[in-house]
Design a protein around this nucleic acid. Sequence first.
DNA 1: AAGTGTTTGCAAAACATTTGCAAATACATA
DNA 2: TATGTATTTGCAAATGTTTTGCAAACACTT
Lengths: 142, 142
Amino acid sequence: MDRKTRLRQSGLSCTRWRYNILKILKDSHLPLTSKDIYKMLPTPKPNLATVYRNLNRLVEKKLVRCVTLGERARYYELIQPDTHKHRIICKTCGQIEAFEPVGCDLKSFEKLIKEKFNFKVEEHSLEFFGTCPKCQSFHSQR
Amino acid sequence: MDRKTRLRQSGLSCTRWRYNILKILKDSHLPLTSKDIYKMLPTPKPNLATVYRNLNRLVEKKLVRCVTLGERARYYELIQPDTHKHRIICKTCGQIEAFEPVGCDLKSFEKLIKEKFNFKVEEHSLEFFGTCPKCQSFHSQR
DNA sequence: AAGTGTTTGCAAAACATTTGCAAATACATA
DNA sequence: TATGTATTTGCAAATGTTTTGCAAACACTT
């Protein structure tokens, strides 16, 4: 489905910036901050407030998900069916890798939570923090 | 080991506020924000900047861990051996529950990451977002 | 008790994000 | 295609969290 139709289906008008922000998120395999997105938008740039307003609108309509990755700023990513990802984040350089859950067995956790706390789980996030190959070798050099 | 000795061992002097902040974190079973801690500190209150500076110092010395839980502000928690916890967060009221990993099988993930990306995992965080019992019943009432 | 380095309070700066308001735009309808 | 209405935008200012510079106060060694 094209982006314009997708926006319409969610009850959002298809404005220049909304369209472009959605496109950028679609083309990115990693979550992006508002600043990242701002930089990637074509010149003439919109106002940063416009980027924020659009991101909030997209999150509200569940086209986009907002995540925090141990950082001060929020990251945004397109919600796509069946592509929930886990992340690996380098504590040294901040690089983010995504990886598909292989036989992700978090379902058993969710069941446990339901039974024990009567808590209805809607989503989860799993992040691994550590050192990426590049930073490991940089470290060992000195 | 008492807090004073613990601070000393980490190369930190034992100041009034440092001591109190560590005590508050020790007594809390949930992660706290800088504001939470500020409120819990005895009167006369320190400056908020002092709370931040101490938290950063404690994190740097690995007595305390800083986590973000899908919120704008950071949370801090005492690092204690063998008590790594996973969390359940209510998206409606913000309530946080901790639960001990039962037969936590994330080790297999870490191994996979090591093999596939050559990424050295140091820690991980696993959070479940959903609706707590209270908010579920509130919802169904109306 | 004195000396030195660390910590504190205060005020201001630095960021990320939000908001009010008037002008510009998108879209449905004529 | 022109027009009306609701939504979106730019701008500037506000908000909320965290950091920083500096002089005074404090912790700890001797």
